[in-house]
């Protein structure tokens, strides 16, 4: 296979031998791919490949080969890309970890690819990051074929505003009576409907975070996300603990 100037984002790079790297990229038409980039750190007239090969930047990659690990032939920047600063950098890394863990190689997801670009742009903006991340998580589940509708309970009935629900693994939202069930694992119908409508403000923000965390965890084979742990430690450190 020989592909020319394929739009892609770098998800992760690992050093390999003296000046090469093993890349995981998310491309528009070929999905997640593994590539070997040779001589990344070699310098020529004040520039090197590694300056262009950075995450969160739209790239045009040319590569060739077969199997799981193809050879990177050329890289061009397809735009300035976004600059994520501070906490937003951790959010960006979280997106990349999600894609690394959940996408299968060679599974083209052009809609998700476009949405990833929009999500990065939104993260670089001023608006709150949480809603942007939740929107991406829902979209990701949808694109992977694990579509999850917060407005429907396990019997495909409409979620009622005043009722309480809990998330049951492998099934979906189950109505729970009164105070029964686990206190932390319950969601209010009102919040679920707000999430379904794409509104992640107020009490729906926390509900969306916990709900999607449970849903995503189901697809991660029980291994936790490292960026989430990093975020937790960062928050603890910030409060002076």
């Amino acid at each position: 296979m020989h592909v020319n100037l394929q739009p892609a984002y770098l998800l992760h790079a690992r050093a390999y031998r003296d000046s090469s790297q093993l890349l995981e990229v998310f491309s528009a038409e070929h999905g997640r791919l593994g590539l070997v980039a040779k001589g990344v750190h070699r310098r020529a007239r004040g520039g090197s490949l590694s300056a262009t090969l950075q995450p969160f930047r739209p790239l045009l990659l040319s590569f060739a080969g077969r199997g799981d690990l193809m050879k990177l032939l050329a890289v061009e920047a397809a735009g300035a890309g976004v600059v994520l600063r501070g906490e937003r950098l951790f959010s960006g890394l979280y997106l990349n970890e999600l894609l690394m863990r959940l996408l299968h190689r060679h599974d083209p997801l052009p809609t998700l690819f476009a949405h990833y670009g929009e999500t990065l742009a939104a993260l670089a903006g001023e608006g709150p990051a949480e809603g942007v991340l939740r929107g991406f998580e829902l979209r990701l589940l949808d694109e992977l074929g694990y579509a999850f509708d917060p407005a429907r309970d396990v019997h495909a009935g409409q979620v009622r505003e005043q009722a309480w629900y809990r998330y049951s693994e492998g099934q979906g939202l189950v109505a729970c009576e009164g105070d029964a069930g686990i206190p932390d694992g319950r969601f209010r119908g009102e919040d679920l409907l707000a999430i379904a409508a794409g509104d992640f403000s107020g009490s729906a923000a926390a509900a969306a975070k916990h709900l999607l965390r449970r849903v995503i965890a189901e697809h991660l084979d029980g291994k936790p996300l490292h960026t989430r742990e990093l975020f937790r430690q960062y928050r603890q450190g910030g409060s002076g603990a």
Binding site: R45, G46, G47, A51, A77, V83
Partner: peptide
């Protein structure tokens, strides 16, 4: 270095 060869960012 030469500006021409330095990447945009």
């Amino acid at each position: 270095g030469e500006l021409e060869y330095v990447d945009g960012s």
